[in-house]
Every structure is written in C-alpha cells, then in structure tokens.
Design a protein around this nucleic acid. Structure first.
Length: 158
DNA sequence: GCCAACGTTGGC
DNA sequence: GCCAACGTTGGC
C-alpha cells in the first residue's frame, strides 16, 4: 500500500514551478543530510507514493503542490561534489552516505499555508506541525493526506 | 536577525 | 556512554 509524504523544498532552490518545468516534471531530491529523512527514503518510500510538495524557508511557507515518488533511492551525487554546499568529505562513491529519490510533480495547487494548516484542528497531529519539527521528509497518514488533497483539489476545481 | 528546538561532534 | 558545545533548521 502506498504511503504518503511531506517533503520540504526551499522554493529559492526548487519550487513546485521549477519541478513542473523540469524534464518529465521530475527532479532529483538532492541535499537531504539528516539520517532520519534519509532512512525514510531508503526504507519506506515506494515509487508512486504521494508527496505533498512543501515550500520552506520562504515568505509564505506551506504546501504548494502535489507530487509523487518517481524512483527508488540512489546515492545523492552532490555529496561527492567538492565545493557543493552538500559536499560530505566522509562520503565516497564506494561508501555513499546520502541518498535521494526522484520526485515527479503532478500539479501545482493553491498555497495551503502553514498558518492554515495550524488552524485546522483535524491536522493537529501532522508531523510537520509538531513543535520543533525540522525533518525535511515526514510521513503523512491516510486521513491527513485525504483531508489535505481533497481540500486542495476541491478549491482547484473551483 | 532572533531564537527555540533538535542533531551532531568530540573530549573525557 | 555521557554531555557540553556547537551547528542547523526554519518560522517569525
């Protein structure tokens, strides 16, 4: 059974528009440098899993689109790139430390802002809303997924 | 720029 | 293995 995820991206680096504009609307999810988030990709993600595309560290943080996991995990090449902000001297192609998956954007939605998410009691348990949560990848339960996606699509339909 | 919260590092 | 110091995240 497919799971669902919320994945944070800084729109400055890769927004939902950037993802949609990429070939096949697919981008490699580079830069994850947290073991818990990496392990989600390694152990729990499956191709086809639903993704809430979240914009973070920006003027209007929130869910900006819907995407899906489009590949199995593989080594993140940026860990080997000297000079990259994601370079990791402890990693080598023989012993990669960091992984990525491809993410395929499905559609841009209205911005479901962080404030709006917080104001929705039924979403109180959404992991990304938990105090102090900094994980860039978090699982999203079926109920939460349905609530959010249905709400977004209902509005998108007008 | 501030700062709360969390993760990582490294000395012991 | 403990834990203080430091670094990072990310909203505000």
């Amino acid at each position: 059974m497919a799971r669902h995820w919320l994945m944070k991206s800084e729109p400055q680096e890769c927004s939902i528009d950037d993802a949609l504009a990429a070939p096949d609307a697919t981008v490699p999810w580079t830069g994850v440098r947290n073991y818990q988030a990496r392990n989600f990709m390694r152990d729990d993600m499956r191709v086809g899993d639903g993704v809430l595309f979240y914009h973070s560290s920006c003027p209007e943080p929130g869910i900006a689109g819907i995407a899906q996991v489009a590949s199995a995990c593989r080594p993140d090449p940026t860990q080997f790139e000297r000079g990259s902000p994601y370079f990791d001297a402890a990693a080598s192609p023989e012993k990669p430390r960091w992984l990525l998956v491809d993410v395929k954007a499905i559609q841009k939605t209205r911005l479901l802002s962080l404030a709006e998410l917080r104001a929705t009691p039924a979403l109180a348990d959404l992991l990304v809303l938990k105090k102090g949560s900094r994980l860039s990848i978090t699982p999203v339960g079926d109920e939460h997924w349905r609530l959010i996606v249905d709400g977004l699509l209902a509005v998108a339909r007008g």
